[in-house]
Design a protein around this nucleic acid. Structure first.
Length: 1045
RNA sequence: GGGCGUUUAGCUCAGUUGGCUAGAGCAUCUCGUUUACACCGAGAGGGUCGGGGGUUCAAGUCCCUCAACGCCCACCA
C-alpha cells in the first residue's frame, strides 16, 4: 500500500474505465491472492454453490452468462459477509451431444464414421475435444469474473466422479433398484443411439394417411372380405402382428357421448357449439359404424385370422380398447416392436414382437423382400406394392406429428432394445418429501409444482445409452439355458478368488419369453446372469470374461453422473473433510428446463447416497430470448457470445445487465444487434438477416461476415459481432460510477483520516447516511431472496440519483471551504467505500479497481473508527447496516430541498433562461420547513444558479414572479426584466388544468356518500387534506395568471 | 388435451397487502460542454395498463371469460 498522496493529476485517471486492461490484471490479483480457494474451516460457516456444469459440447452462451453471474453475486456477497464461500466449478461430458459433435466433425473433415476409428480411438478424439472446449469454457467464466475455486475443478467423467458413479450404480444394483428390461426406445437412426424422451421434440409436418385393406382369411356369412386399417407410417405394416378392434364398441360410443354431454354442462357458449357438433357426429357414426364394428368384434372373438399382405403372414384379429371406434375404420394395426402404444397392446394380448429394423434404420430379414431398404425407402415401396395389389383403399393428406431427435434433427424410430433402468418408486418419493417438508426450497415457488408433478409419475429412469462417450455400465452378463446353468454359473462366480461379495453383486434376469418352446425357436436364453462390479477390479473383470461373461457395451445417461455432482465433486464415497464441511451445499442456481432432468435427480441421489439433501435452496432464473421472443441458439443465428459483450461493454456491464433483468418472470428478452466491424455501427437482427453468411453495414456500406460464413471469400471478411444495446445502460452506469470515483480522487488530496464527528454532520450528510443504511439493508435482503433485478435497480438509483446527482454535487461546494474540507473528505471516503462494497458482487472489476485507487489516497477510513481498508475489495467485509441513521424526518427535509431545486430548474427551462443567468427567488413555507432549508441556500446557487432572497411564512413575493405551488411550499422566482409572458401563461394554464382535474376527482369522492361511509378514515382524511392543498394551489395559480394579464 | 408464464409509453421492463394525477432506462424533441462524467447535465412530449364482463366507495392490482405469444408435460392408428 502506498502512502497517502497529497495531490493527484486529473490526467492520472482517465475519464473512462479501461476495462480490457484492468480485467485480466485484477482477476490475476484475486487468483494469486488465493481468494477463490476455500478450505474446510471450523471457525467459519460454509457457503457452497456447485456450478451447473456446462456441457463441453461448445462455448458458453448468454444463458450461461446469466446463470454464472447470479452464482458469482451470491458467492461474492457471502464471502464478504464472512462465510467460507466455495464455488465448485466443472464441466459435464454431455454424452450424446459431445459424441455427436465429434462424430460430425469426423465425418466432415475425414469422411469417417465412428466404426472406422473404433471405440478407443473415438473416445480419445472426444477427450481432445473436451480438453479444448473445457479450456474455452473455463476461460469464458474467468473473463466474466467468476470467483470459482479453480483448484477443485471437476469433470463428470474424471476419476473422482467415475468412482462415485460406480459406487452409486453398484449400490442401486445391489438394492435391486437397477434392472434390465426390454423397452421401446426412441431410436435415432442417424446417431445410432437411443434418445431420452426429453430429447425428442414433436414436429408437425404435412404427411399422408394411408388406408390399407387386409384380407380376411375365409370370411363367413356376413363377414367382410377385408379389414381396413389406416396409418401414417405404412412401412411398419411389415412388423404388424395383429389388427385390433374395440371389445365393446357400443359401450365405447355411449361413454364418449356421456362425456361430451357432461362437458357441455360446464362449457362456455363458444365451446358449446363445437361440442354439440361433436355429439351429432358421434351419433351418426354410431349409427353407421356400429353393426360393422360388432361383426368385427365377433370375428376377433371367434379367432378369425387375417392375411398380412406383402409379407403373407397370418395375423389375428384381437380385441383391445386401444382401438377407438370413433376413429378411422375403427380398426387399428398393431406393430408391437415399433410403436409404444402397440407395444402395450402386444403385451396385453400376448402378441409376438417383430422387429423389422436394423440399428442404422435399414430393414432386416423380417421385412422379407424389403430387407436392406431404409425405412423411408420402404415406405414408398410398401405403398406402391399395396397399390399394385389393389389393397390400397385411399390416401389422405394430413398434418402429422413426427417425433424428431433434438440432437440430430432426424426422425425417431421406435425400436425395441435391452435397457437398464433405475426404479424410481422409493427414490422419487424421498425427493418429493424433501421439497414437501421444505428441506429443499424452490424459488420461485411455482416451480415446486413441476418438480413434484414430474416425480409423482415415478416412471422408471432408462439409463442406458448406446454410446461410447460416458461411464460404461459396470455389468458383465451371460445368458444361461436353464435354471441349473444359472446356478452353476453363480457358484463359479462366487468361487473365484477375485470375487468379493462386498464389491460385486449378482442379479438373475429371467427372459420375458416364458414359453420354453418359443425360447428355443427364437434362440433366447432361459435367464441372464448379471454381475455388477463396484470399483475397478481388473482381476475380477478378467475372471468374469474367462467365464464367458461379456461387459455391457452401453454407457450411462449423462444425467446419472450429473445427479451425483454436489457430492461426487466433494470426494464421496470417501468421507473427505470437504464433504463433511461443505455438504449439503447451500444454493443451486439453474434454469427451469432441467428441474426434472437434473434438480430432481440430484435430490434423490443425494438422499440415497448421503441421506441428506444436496442443497437447501434452489433458484430458478429466467430464460433468455431474443427480441422476437425466440430462444437464443447458435443454429438460429440469434445467439450472443458473452465474450463479444465483454469486449464491447466490459465484463461488469455484462454482469450488471444480467442481474438487472433477472426478475421472477420465466422469460426475459434481449433484442439482438449486429455490430459492424468496420465502423462499429449497430443494427437490429431480423429473422432474415440473422441467417446470412455476410452482410453489408447500413452505415458504412462495407461487407462483413457472420457465423454462417463458409466460402473463403466470406471468411476473409472481418467478422461482425452479435451483441445487444441492452448492455449500454450497464456500461453507462459503470462509467458514471467510475467518474464519481474520479471526482473523489481529484478531491481527496490532503485527506487526513479521523473518525467522523457527529456534530459536523450536515443535513445532506445525515440524508446520505440514512439512504445508505436503508439501501444496504434492502439490497442485502433482496440479494438473499434472489431478487436480483430489484437489488440492482436500487443500487443503480442510489448510486446515480442520490450519490452522484446530489451528494457529490453538494460536496463540491464544501471542498472549497478549508474548514469544511477535512470532514467532507472523510464522509466522501466513507460513503464511496460503502457503495463500492455494495456494488462489488455485481460489478467486481470496476469496484476493485476504484478500491485500489482509493487506497492510494485514503488508505485508512471509517466512520466511528478509522482503520486501514482491506487490501482487496473482494475480501472486504460487507457493509454494516447502521439502521440508527435511518431517518424519515431527514429524508423528508431533504426532499423539500430537492423539490425546490426542481422547481427552480423547471422555471429556468420554461423561461428559457441562459444557464449562468442568476435568478432570485423566495419561498413561502412554515418555519419548521424553513429551518432545515435555509442552510441549503448555497446549493441553490451552485446547482440552479438561484439566489435565495427570503424564506418563511410571511414573505412578500417579488412583484413580477413565476410561482411554483407545491403542497407545502410556494416558490416565487423573481422574473423582473426577464419574464416571457407567453411561456409563463402556458405553464400556469397547464398547471391549473392539471390541478383542477385533481380537485374534481377528489370532490367527487368526498361527496360520494358510499365512499365516505366505506373507505377507511385515514383514506378519507388524506383525500380531505389533499383537496385543501389542491384548492390552495389552484388559488395561487389563478392569482398568478390574473397578474399576467 | 393438462399445467405454468407473459400481455403496462415506439422498445425493454418496474408497479408490494386494491387507495393521492401509473413509474424507470433506452429512443424522440428542446436547451446546455458550469474543471467527475456527452457512456454527461437540465427540461419536455408520449400510456383508454391485451379485449369483454364482474366484485368494490375505489381495480394496472382481486374474480370470471375471450384472445395472442412463450415454455413444460401428456397424447393423437
Amino acid at each position: 500500500m502506498t502512502t497517502a498522496n497529497s495531490t493527484i493529476n486529473p490526467d492520472d485517471i482517465p475519464s473512462r474505465f479501461d476495462f480490457s486492461e484492468a480485467q485480466d490484471r485484477l482477476y490475476a490479483m484475486w487468483e494469486d491472492g488465493g481468494y477463490f480457494h476455500a478450505e474446510p474451516d471450523a471457525t467459519k460457516p460454509p457457503f457452497t454453490i456447485v456450478i451447473p456444469p456446462p456441457n463441453v459440447t461448445g462455448a458458453l452462451h448468454l444463458g450461461h452468462a446469466l446463470n454464472n453471474t447470479l452464482q458469482d453475486i451470491q458467492i461474492r456477497m457471502k464471502r464478504m459477509q464472512g462465510f467460507n464461500a466455495l464455488w465448485m466449478p466443472g464441466t459435464d461430458h454431455a454424452g450424446i451431444a459431445t459424441q455427436a459433435v465429434v462424430e460430425r466433425r469426423l465425418r466432415e473433415q475425414e469422411n469417417k464414421t465412428r466404426h472406422d476409428l473404433g471405440r478407443e480411438n473415438l473416445v480419445a478424439r472426444i477427450w481432445d475435444w473436451k480438453t479444448e472446449y473445457e479450456g474455452r469454457i473455463l476461460g469464458q467464466l474467468k473473463k466474466m469474473g467468476c470467483s470459482c475455486d479453480w483448484q477443485r475443478t471437476r469433470f463428470t467423467l474424471d476419476e473422482m466422479c467415475a468412482t462415485a458413479v460406480r459406487h452409486t450404480f453398484f449400490d442401486l444394483f445391489h438394492k435391486q433398484l437397477i434392472y434390465r428390461g426390454k423397452r421401446l426406445v426412441n431410436w435415432d437412426t442417424f446417431l445410432q443411439t437411443t434418445v431420452s424422451d426429453d430429447e425428442v421434440v414433436n414436429e408437425t409436418k404435412q404427411g399422408n394417411f394411408w388406408h390399407f385393406m387386409y384380407p380376411v382369411i375365409d370370411p363367413q356369412g356376413n363377414e367382410p372380405a377385408h379389414v381396413v386399417v389406416a396409418t401414417t407410417r405404412p412401412e411398419t405394416m411389415l412388423g404388424d402382428t395383429a389388427v385390433a378392434v374395440h371389445p365393446d364398441p357400443a359401450a365405447a360410443f355411449d361413454r364418449i357421448a356421456s362425456e361430451l354431454t357432461e362437458k357441455l354442462k360446464t362449457a362456455s357458449s363458444a365451446e358449446q357449439k363445437n361440442i354439440q357438433a361433436d355429439l351429432e357426429a358421434v351419433a351418426i357414426r354410431r349409427q353407421t359404424m356400429l353393426p360393422q364394428l360388432e361383426i368385427l368384434r365377433n370375428m376377433a372373438q371367434a379367432g378369425r385370422k387375417l392375411m398380412l399382405p406383402l409379407v403373407n403372414r397370418v395375423i389375428p384379429l384381437v380385441t383391445d380398447a386401444w382401438a377407438k371406434p370413433e376413429l378411422g375404420s375403427g380398426c387399428v394395426k398393431i406393430t408391437p416392436a415399433h410403436d409404444p402404444n402397440d407395444y402395450e397392446v402386444g403385451k396385453r394380448c400376448g402378441l409376438p414382437l417383430i422387429n423389422i429394423m436394423n440399428r442404422d434404420g435399414s430393414l432386416n430379414l423380417e421385412a422379407g423382400k424389403y430387407q436392406g431398404l431404409l425405412m423411408k425407402q420402404a415406405r414408398t415401396a410398401v405403398v406402391d406394392d399395396m397399390e399394385a395389389t389393389g389393397l390400397l383403399q385411399k390416401v389422405e393428406d394430413r398434418e402429422i406429428e413426427m417425433p424428431m431427435s433434438d440432437r440430430s434433427k432426424t426422425p425417431i424410430e421406435p425400436f425395441l432394445a435391452d435397457q437398464w433402468f433405475v426404479k424410481m418408486d422409493s427414490l422419487a418419493e424421498s425427493a418429493m418429501q424433501a421439497v414437501r417438508d421444505s428441506r429443499v426450497k424452490i424459488y420461485p415457488v411455482r416451480y415446486e409444482r413441476s418438480y413434484l408433478d414430474w416425480l409423482g409419475e415415478k416412471r422408471d429412469w432408462p439409463v442406458s445409452r448406446q454410446l461410447w462417450w460416458g461411464h460404461q455400465i459396470p455389468v458383465w452378463s451371460l445368458g444361461c439355458s436353464s435354471e441349473k446353468a444359472v446356478q452353476d454359473l453363480k457358484s463359479q462366480i462366487q468361487a473365484l478368488n477375485s470375487y468379493d461379495a462386498q464389491g460385486a453383486a449378482i442379479q438373475i434376469e429371467l427372459d420375458s419369453e416364458s414359453d420354453p418352446e418359443k425360447r428355443t425357436l427364437l434362440g433366447l436364453p432361459y435367464a441372464t446372469v448379471h454381475v455388477c462390479v463396484q470399483s475397478n477390479n481388473e482381476l475380477l473383470e478378467s475372471d468374469l470374461i474367462q467365464l464367458g461373461m461379456v461387459r455391457e457395451e452401453d454407457v450411462l445417461d449423462t444425467w446419472f453422473s450429473s445427479a451425483l455432482w454436489p457430492h461426487s465433486t466433494l470426494g464421496w464415497p470417501q468421507q473427505t473433510p470437504e464433504l463433511q464441511y461443505f455438504y449439503p451445499t447451500s444454493t443451486l442456481i439453474t434454469s427451469r428446463d432441467i428441474i426434472s432432468l437434473w434438480v430432481a435427480r440430484m435430490v434423490l441421489m443425494g438422499l440415497n447416497n448421503l441421506h441428506e439433501v444436496p442443497f437447501k435452496e434452489v433458484f430458478i432464473h429466467p430464460k433468455i430470448q431474443d427480441g422476437f421472443g425466440e430462444t437464443m441458439s447458435k443454429s438460429k443465428g440469434n445467439g450472443i457470445d458473452p465474450l463479444d459483450v465483454i469486449e464491447k461493454f466490459g465484463a461488469d456491464a455484462l454482469r450488471f445487465g444480467m442481474a438487472h433483468l433477472t426478475t421472477e418472470t420465466q422469460d426475459v428478452r434481449i433484442p439482438v444487434q449486429f455490430e459492424c466491424p468496420h465502423c462499429a455501427h449497430t443494427f437490429d437482427q431480423t429473422k432474415k438477416n440473422r441467417v446470412l453468411p455476410q452482410l453489408a453495414c447500413p452505415g458504412c456500406k462495407q461487407e462483413f461476415s457472420t457465423q454462417w460464413a463458409s466460402t473463403d471469400a466470406q471468411k476473409s471478411l472481418p467478422r461482425g459481432a452479435v451483441t445487444s444495446e441492452r448492455f449500454e445502460v450497464a456500461r453507462n452506469f459503470n462509467n458514471k460510477l467510475w467518474n464519481a470515483s474520479r471526482f473523489a480522487m481529484l478531491n481527496l488530496g490532503g485527506y487526513s483520516p479521523a473518525p467522523i464527528v457527529e456534530s459536523d454532520l450536515t443535513i445532506e450528510d445525515r440524508w446520505m447516511l440514512s439512504r445508505l443504511a436503508t439501501v444496504s439493508q434492502s439490497v442485502t435482503d433482496k440479494f438473499e431472496q434472489f431478487q436480483f433485478a430489484d437489488a440492482t435497480r436500487e443500487l443503480y438509483d442510489f448510486a446515480w440519483d442520490n450519490f452522484c446527482s446530489f451528494y457529490v454535487e453538494m460536496l463540491k461546494d464544501r471542498f472549497t471551504d478549508p474548514t469544511a474540507r477535512p470532514h467532507a473528505q472523510r464522509m466522501l471516503a466513507y460513503t464511496l467505500d460503502s457503495l463500492l462494497r455494495l456494488l462489488h458482487p455485481v460489478v467486481p472489476f470496476i469496484t476493485e479497481e476504484i478500491w485500489q485507487n482509493l487506497a492510494k489516497l485514503a488508505p485508512a477510513r471509517g466512520f466511528d473508527a478509522v482503520a486501514p481498508a482491506s487490501p482487496c475489495l473482494i475480501t472486504a467485509p460487507w457493509p454494516r447496516i447502521d439502521s440508527h441513521w435511518q431517518s424519515p424526518e431527514i429524508e423528508q427535509q431533504f426532499s423539500m430541498y430537492q423539490q425546490t431545486l426542481a422547481a427552480l430548474r423547471e422555471i429556468r427551462a420554461k423561461q428559457n433562461l441562459p444557464p449562468r443567468k442568476e435568478i432570485r427567488f423566495s419561498v413561502r413555507c412554515t418555519e419548521s420547513i424553513a429551518v432545515p432549508l435555509r442552510p441549503m441556500a448555497s446549493y441553490f446557487k451552485s446547482m440552479a444558479a438561484a439566489e435565495l432572497f427570503e424564506m418563511g411564512p410571511k414573505i412578500v413575493p417579488p412583484a413580477i414572479n413565476a410561482p411554483i405551488v407545491l403542497p407545502e411550499l410556494e416558490i416565487y422566482v423573481d422574473l423582473a426584466g426577464l419574464i416571457d409572458k407567453t411561456a409563463e401563461t402556458a405553464r400556469l394554464e397547464k398547471e391549473r388544468a392539471k390541478i383542477a382535474t385533481g380537485i374534481a376527482t377528489k370532490q367527487a369522492k368526498l361527496s360520494n356518500e358510499k365512499f365516505m361511509n366505506s373507505a377507511p378514515p385515514e383514506i378519507v382524511e388524506r383525500e380531505r387534506v389533499a383537496l385543501a392543498q389542491s384548492e390552495d394551489q389552484l388559488k395561487s395559480i389563478a392569482e398568478a395568471l390574473a397578474r399576467l394579464r
